[in-house]
């Protein structure tokens, strides 16, 4: 059970929106985390520095913002095999589908990109169905 937290949700969302907007207005880049992360670790990519700084900033932002009311999780219940499978799927899917929650559901949707609208609808429905099956049918 988690509580409905409208104020922190709106404020956190606003920061994410401002972040994506800054990166686009000033640098002309889309704040898609999966894409930035993937390109940051490609040895052949010669435009890696800004990506590393963005990712470093992200970690710093998490560090500054974490406190008892907005903490990081201390542990995750999921088993190791499930964690690994989910990790592989998230990485694989975001690369094949050219984006994740940030690139498609925020930046793409915000630009009204048809591809991102379709991708967001598909992954939201698939994710909700997955939760429905694991929680209510398999009863995990």
């Amino acid at each position: 059970m988690t509580e409905f937290t409208p104020l922190t949700a709106l404020f956190g969302g606003a920061l994410i929106g401002v972040s994506a907007l800054l990166l686009l207005i000033f640098n002309g880049r889309i704040a898609g985390i999966s894409g930035i992360l993937y390109s940051a670790i490609q040895p052949a990519d010669n435009d890696r520095l800004w990506r590393w700084l963005f990712l470093l900033g992200l970690m710093l932002g998490v560090f500054f913002a974490m406190n008892p009311t907005t903490p990081l999780p201390s542990d995750i219940e999921a088993s190791w095999p499930l964690l690994i499978i989910a990790g592989l799927l998230v990485g694989f899917g975001s690369k094949i589908g050219n984006g994740c929650t940030s690139g498609h559901a925020i930046c793409g949707l915000g630009r009204l990109s048809p591809r991102s609208i379709v991708a967001t609808i598909i992954f939201m429905i698939t994710a909700a169905l997955t939760v429905f099956i694991t929680r209510h049918i398999l009863g995990a």
Partner: peptide
């Protein structure tokens, strides 16, 4: 700008609790 944008993004994720 890349660094600042990253900081805002990370803070946003945490405050919004998308990290949970």
């Amino acid at each position: 700008i890349a660094l600042i944008s990253g900081v805002l993004f990370g803070a946003g994720l945490t405050i919004a609790q998308m990290v949970n």
